[in-house]
Design a protein around this nucleic acid. Structure first.
Length: 565
RNA sequence: CGGGGCGUAGCGCAGUUCGGUUAGCGCGCAGCGUUCGGGACGCUGAGGUCGGAGGUUCGAAUCCUCUCGCCCCGACCA
């Protein structure tokens, strides 16, 4: 490809709206163009990189036994109502009305459609397992798109679904996909972290995410520095060490004038925050819920939401709390009733806690569970944090941020159940097919690859996903010896099957070198008066400072060697 | 949806407080010439009606009302 004819120009100045590294570089390199919030065009260079990623994914899916197909983007809302996931996705579903006033959904994912499809085509256990997949544009009306390609409303996703006769089959399919995903990210030059995850609106039990560690990531990862325990903060748990505070003592009410926060009360009474119990109030589907948790630990809202089975969960406002007759700043479960009380299991880690007295200006000492209060549910709803102890090995937990590039789910049978996707076993009995779901966001993977591979000059594409392999860079376009050599080399390299981006613009060397760095093509080959005088060219890796001088007639061979690695 | 910021030429911005000739600057773009190993230079030129609508006024990029859009933080989110 001749750069002079390529659609998409490099820019010197950084657009004001771009904050994250990948977004800035993609725009500066002229690779993407925004049309609306979270809606982008891919220009030829980005599209080539995306196609390479797509081919790697397709290759790995096929090797793992996947079968590619294509399902409709346009889906009847009724299908979603059957599984109840229209509610789970809520306003995240893009919907539209056709001329017959029927509501259609722009597919945000395809569990419903594929379960319906497979259900109509599978009769027997002999037809299983199945691993159908597609690579297709998805639509989600995200409350807020962000970070360029990191979170968008229209995006290309590879979605594969596994269909097995039983749990063992699902486990096997899941392991296959897990291995295939590792291959994909490795081949794309992306180090990823495999972490445990919450399954969110997709549903199901077990779930893992593939994370690329990056500052700009939206997710917080809690991982152990000693063992391989790692999880999304939404899912992570940590060890709650015992608080040694002697045998239970009788309740004592103490005056704590003006002290309302845990820090203030603890300091005032001379105890660490871990020796206190705090009250936190949430509205779960518009009902007040009273949470009790040790003073030094935060509430994990995802765990709480799952525990309550709530569709919507948010912190209660002060008015809602006081309206329920609770004394904010001095609330405790002791002697209170009238609403759901949920406790984190940290309340069992010690004795003689300090808690509110439900009376302004007073607190209680020596509060003990279950002696002094009862709860409706006792569970782990704690927020794990850096510095906590690892529940697996007692090592120290650390936190980092990551971009979720892949997510895999063991769904089970709740979707096939509701859509009647059944099979007949060897005994002639009917069962719902056991499903799994496996997704990769291609655009996000592309962005993550840039987040991971760049320097202050620009993108540094990993070779397997680079839009072109070679950047052919003649320096004096007015010099016929130079352009002659470059033209010849260009056709030679192309004929040899190398992917060449030919910078045939009449620009100064500085401009060309800087654009070459910005575009991040792995190998740059420079032709100039100097090199032509020596019957040679310079070959330089994007990752290295120094170039190597290669005789003109060997350039082709040498490049092939380098590219094969 | 809550909070904050912003819409003036393809991009980056000034001008808006305090209304007043043909709305500026830099980059980029086009033509000509000189240059050419890390973002060269000169000359000439094209390009905007100031996000949109309504209003106030002799006069609006500037004031008022409404509205649309974009970004960031949060809520939310496979």
């Amino acid at each position: 490809m001749r750069l002079s004819k390529l659609l998409g120009k490099t820019q010197r100045e950084i657009p004001a709206e771009a904050d994250t590294v990948s977004h800035r570089l993609l725009i500066r390199a002229g690779m993407v163009q925004q049309l609306a919030a979270g809606v982008y065009s891919y220009l030829p260079l980005a599209w080539r990189a995306l196609k390479k990623i797509e081919n790697i994914i397709r290759d790995e899916m096929d090797r793992a036994g996947g079968q590619e197909l294509s399902m409709p983007v346009l889906q009847p809302l009724e299908l979603w109502q059957k599984t109840g996931r229209d509610a789970a996705f809520g306003t995240g579903l893009f919907t539209l009305t056709d001329r017959r006033e029927r509501t259609l959904v722009l597919g945000p994912t395809h569990e419903e459609v594929i379960a319906d499809l497979v259900g109509r085509n599978v009769r027997s256990y002999r037809d299983l397992p199945l691993l159908p997949y597609q690579i297709q544009t998805k639509f989600r009306d995200e409350p807020r798109s962000r970070g360029g390609l990191i979170r968008v409303r229209e995006f290309i996703m590879k979605d594969l679904y596994s269909f097995d006769a039983d749990q063992e089959g699902l486990d096997e399919s899941y392991q296959k996909m897990l291995a295939a995903y590792k291959n994909i990210f490795n081949r794309c030059g992306l180090p990823t972290m495999l972490i445990q995850a919450d399954s969110g609106a997709i549903g199901g039990k077990e779930s893992h995410e593939f994370m690329v560690v990056a500052e700009s990531g939206e997710d917080e990862i809690i991982y152990c520095e000693k063992c391989d325990n790692a999880a999304n903060v939404e899912k992570a748990s940590s060890l709650k060490e015992r608080i040694e505070d002697g045998p239970p003592q009788p309740l004592v009410e103490v005056a704590t004038p003006g002290k309302e926060s845990i820090e203030d009360v603890a300091a005032f009474l001379g105890v660490p925050p871990s020796h206190t119990l705090k009250a936190v109030f949430y509205m779960a589907d518009d009902k007040l819920v009273f949470i009790v948790i040790r003073g030094d630990i935060g509430v994990n809202e995802v765990k709480l939401k799952n525990l309550l089975g709530a569709a919507e969960l948010r912190l209660a406002t002060e008015a809602e709390v006081t309206g329920a007759g609770v004394v904010a700043g001095s609330a405790s479960p002791v002697g209170l009733s009238g609403f759901r009380i949920i406790a984190d299991d940290s309340v069992t880690t010690g004795n003689n806690f300090v808690a509110g007295a439900n009376k302004a200006g007073y607190h209680l000492k020596n509060v003990n569970y279950p002696r002094d209060f009862k709860v409706e549910m006792l569970a782990d709803i704690a927020l794990a944090a850096a510095g906590h102890a690892c529940p697996a090995c007692n090592g120290v937990l650390r936190a980092t941020r990551g971009i979720e590039v892949g997510h895999i789910f063991k769904l089970g049978t709740f979707i096939s159940d509701r859509l009647g996707a059944n099979y007949t076993d060897a005994e002639g009995a009917s069962h719902p097919i056991v499903m799994g779901s496996y997704g990769i966001g291609l655009g996000r993977l592309l962005a993550a690859a840039i987040e991971q591979n760049h320097d202050d000059k620009g993108i540094v594409w990993p070779l397997p996903i680079a839009p072109y392999q070679v950047y052919l860079c003649p320096l004096q376009m007015a010099d016929e010896a130079v352009t002659g050599a470059a033209d010849k080399l260009y056709s030679l390299l192309e004929a040899a099957g190398l992917e060449v981006l030919y910078d045939d613009r009449n620009e100064s060397p500085g401009v060309k070198f800087n654009d070459a760095d910005l575009l991040g093509i792995p190998f740059r080959i420079t032709v100039s008066k100097r090199t032509v005088a020596n019957d040679s060219v310079e070959i330089k890796r994007r990752t290295e400072k120094e170039a190597e001088l290669v005789p003109l007639e060997e350039a082709n061979k040498r490049l092939k060697e380098l590219i094969r690695g």
